[in-house]
Design a protein around this nucleic acid. Structure first.
Length: 263
DNA sequence: ATGGTCGCAACGCGA
């Protein structure tokens, strides 16, 4: 089963890029974040025509929004409400082979890394805590599960271009990293990217729009993640962060992360 | 140290 995650930063603006990605890489399932549209305006038929006729769409006007596009039928889908907000930041699908797939879009958290001064950062921290609670004591924690998404945290020193320069920058502060690690520990999740890329090597999935030349400066961060439950350890056969897609015309600032699981 | 760029939707907000 080939699974991809991609923060698309408007699925309507970039529907043709999604279609190109689907044609080239042929994932079985694509999880999108920041679709930025209400469900009625989601380009369903564009993707259905390419074989992705099973769609769990959870969007809102203008902001956030997540979706799962699949060639494989779902058994069931649902979405969680986190932090008692209407924000569309989670959608999950269960497949007939028993796999449960969770697609998250964690709040970015604003600029000031202090929850007392910045309510957006406080929301991010609360969201990460709730993410952990969602899986702690989960009666189904032993089933095969995959968690993907834009988690908006780069946890390891080599998940950012400069560990020391980003220690006080939202996405890499110790506070967020600790909470992300706690969420990861809640189900003993495996970080698939780091099973393939050694911890001493740089790995990025996002490059800012603000750089003059994103490729030349290469000041990236690894914000997009694929986690598998412990029972799926070793199931990942291939892994790729599709850096060239950042160079596509009118690209998203995130690139897809793609894994092939033997399930 | 600062500001740099996007997308939505309406000229601000969130990223």
């Amino acid at each position: 089963m080939k699974i991809a995650t991609w923060n698309i930063n408007s699925v309507r603006l970039r529907r043709n890029l999604v279609a190109r990605f689907l044609r080239i890489h042929q994932p079985d399932v694509l999880c999108l974040q920041e679709t930025k549209t209400i469900n009625d305006l989601f380009p369903k038929t564009t993707f259905a025509k390419l074989g992705y006729e099973h769609q769990a769409i959870h969007g809102q006007k203008g902001y956030h929004g997540v979706a799962i596009l699949s060639r494989v039928p779902f058994r069931d889908t649902h979405s969680k409400t986190l932090c008692d907000r209407e924000d569309c930041r989670h959608v999950a699908a269960e497949f007939k082979n028993g796999l449960e797939l969770h697609n998250f879009y964690v709040p970015a958290g604003g600029d000031i890394p202090d929850p007392k001064l910045n309510p957006k950062f406080a929301h991010k921290l609360a969201f990460l805590r709730e993410m952990a609670h969602a899986f702690t004591n989960n009666p189904e924690r032993n089933k095969p599960m995959v968690l993907v998404g834009d988690l908006n945290v780069a946890p390891l020193p080599h998940d950012v271009w400069s560990h020391t320069q980003l220690l006080n920058v939202v996405s890499h502060t110790p506070l967020e990293v600790d909470l992300l690690n706690a969420a990861k520990a809640s189900l003993d999740w495996v970080d698939v990217t780091r099973e393939f890329v050694p911890h001493g090597e740089k790995a990025y999935s996002w490059w800012s729009y603000r750089a003059q030349d994103w490729k030349k400066s290469d000041r990236g961060r690894r914000l997009d993640h694929v986690w598998t439950s412990r029972g799926l350890k070793g199931a990942a056969k291939t892994h790729a962060i599709l850096k060239p897609l950042r160079g596509w015309k009118q690209a998203s600032d995130h690139v897809p992360v793609l894994v092939e699981l033997d399930i």
